[in-house]
Design a protein around this nucleic acid. Structure first.
Lengths: 143, 143
DNA sequence: TTCTTAACTTGAATCGTTCCAGAAAAGCGG
DNA sequence: CCGCTTTTCTGGAACGATTCAAGTTAAGAA
């Protein structure tokens, strides 16, 4: 579990000024995987008191641009953020409740990076989303 | 190239009433692959005259629910629709201009359907998006 | 044709997100 | 430690895609 000092270190490494909202937002993303912006705003507020939503939006954008966090936008959902970056993992999402879980690459490190026909595109990332139903939603349907 | 009769046939097959907006919207999706809702509304209006945006929204939802068209929502983009359904193909999207092209499955029919660790999820679809730069945007950068 | 149901119109509302101008704070050189 | 410069944060408003609600119209069955 990273400490405040670790978060400050991460920020400095990407030339971002160390501010309370940034440290708190970074910690919130680490503590709440796949959380949406609203949840993160709440987390930051629990830590620091009143903070404007726009500040959190700005911070998340800065963190995303710097590569410290990853923004994911599943269809039919609001933007979500996660702290795992650069390891080429994917996601499995429940159609019913929207729950998200991490899935490591099925085949080696960059499995789907090789499309059959690229139409001349220079591909730099393959994003994979597995759609299905999570365990608890499967139970509910059976009842 | 399907005709109006073909579209009517498709609608009847899924127990949807045949209406002018529906036929026009279905034709629009076939004629404009990966078009967003706004473009489809325009296409329908060129065909039928004044049609309310909500009608097109409703029609597209009905067509999507019926499985006649597929709705895709790339991150950072509005909803788009395509007529290719049920063939498990994927997409390559340009980060710069948002252009979308179809990509057939790299490995057989259901390549990525086998995640390494499913967390108990019942997976029914694997959605793959290849992110990169399209040929024309690559040219622009070089200049 | 007549009836029933589904579909369309009109109008407004919602919600996540972004933009703007001004105030505040952090970092840095002195 | 002090003041300056730059960046960030605040507060408010705006935006745009999508959805909701109520009433009217049209499609398909009897």
């Amino acid at each position: 579990m990273p400490t405040t000092v670790d978060y400050e270190q991460l920020l400095r490494e990407v030339d971002l000024r160390v501010t309370q909202p940034r440290v708190a937002a970074l910690a919130a993303v680490y503590d709440n995987p796949h959380a949406d912006t609203g949840s993160l705003i709440e987390s930051v507020r629990e830590e620091l008191g009143e903070v404007s939503p726009q500040a959190v939006y700005d911070v998340l954008r800065a963190l995303t641009d710097a590569g410290l966090v990853r923004r994911i936008e599943p269809a039919g959902s609001v933007a979500r953020y996660e702290s795992r970056v650069g390891d080429n993992h994917h996601h499995v999402i429940c159609r019913a409740c929207g729950a998200i879980a991490d899935v490591d690459c099925a085949v080696g490190d960059t499995p789907c990076l090789t499309a059959s026909e690229t139409h001349g595109f220079a591909i730099d990332e393959a994003e994979v989303i597995y759609w299905g139903r999570c365990p608890s939603c499967r139970k509910e349907t059976r009842v």
